[in-house]
Amino acid sequence: MTARMLPKNRIEEFVGRLLEQAEVVAPRRVEVGDVFYGAVASAEEVAWDYGHAVEPLKRFLLPQRETMLRYSTGDKVRVEAELDEQERVFLGIRCCDVTGIGVLDAMFGGDTPDPYYMSRRERSTVIALTCLQAPDETCFCVCCDAGPFLAKGYDQQWTSLPEGMLVEVGSERGEALVRSNDDLFDEASVDQVAARYRLAREAEQTFGDFKSYIAGAMSKLSMNEVDPKVWEQAALRCMECGGCTYLCPTCSCFTVTDRMEDSSGVRERHWDACLYSCYAREASGHNPRPEREDRLRARFFHKISYQWAQRNGRQACVGCGRCVVGCMAWAHMPAITEGIRRGVMT
């Protein structure tokens, strides 16, 4: 591991330099006390001691609503695409959310890259901030290989030590950032590196009872061995709000609509949720998943089946716990995996 130290009194300077080159998106407290990732104007705005952000970073890579094309109708149609080319540094991001980006990369990259996503992604630098203790009682990243410290998936990973940030470099991009600000970074000492591993072990012990039995559920889901009763029972515990998908760092379903403004049209995409009853409904009226249990089954198969884990490089749950907070009823990831394991929903 190449590790450096960014001493406390130089963090402000470093963030200042980042701000000269890019939009810096970091955790910050908004109006009534909630924490959101958002653009900051100075290091002072960053809520270094935050627990959990209400939402993952997804909105900055895949907005809830975005313009894909603009076109003019009339005699001759003209179509133009709009790409977001803003350079961004994502600073102080929780490990689960950083891992989530990896899943999105698999979905939107591949042999047919999505230019809207990739345009943002290729211009972004990800600086993770490790969790020295479970940020929230609903966190279960420890069950998902997605925190509280990461081994990969970041450009830089910061760990807060009393004297400053221990900076691990995980990519060429992360290394370049160190190199171009060489005057701010010190070499990390052996003790400092040792502290990081001790803190990681200690942090893991602080996670609560909220466990998600993903491995067991994955095997049953992948082999199509889940008792159908579980889905029927889950259907009574889901209100189809879509919150679990919207808050999920890895859920990326979208729908596309056209809207007209006078003689010019805009093609937009919007977040969509596979739990909505009209999600798979065809124009003819045929709905391959007419019942809520069908949709729940499809959703969890996509999230944590072995088949999809293979396609995406990992299962699509990172244990951020946001579906637990955001579920209107009781059909979030830990509730469902527990139900699958026991063959009955509580």
Partner: peptide, 26 residues
């Protein structure tokens, strides 16, 4: 208005929104 998020600090929503709330911006 390009999107909506729930408020966790709010005494009613507590971090949740229903399908209508999630689409209020539309």
């Amino acid at each position: 208005v390009v999107g909506v998020s729930p408020s966790r600090a709010h005494p009613i929503s507590q971090g949740r929104l229903c399908v209508k709330g999630w689409h209020a911006h539309e």
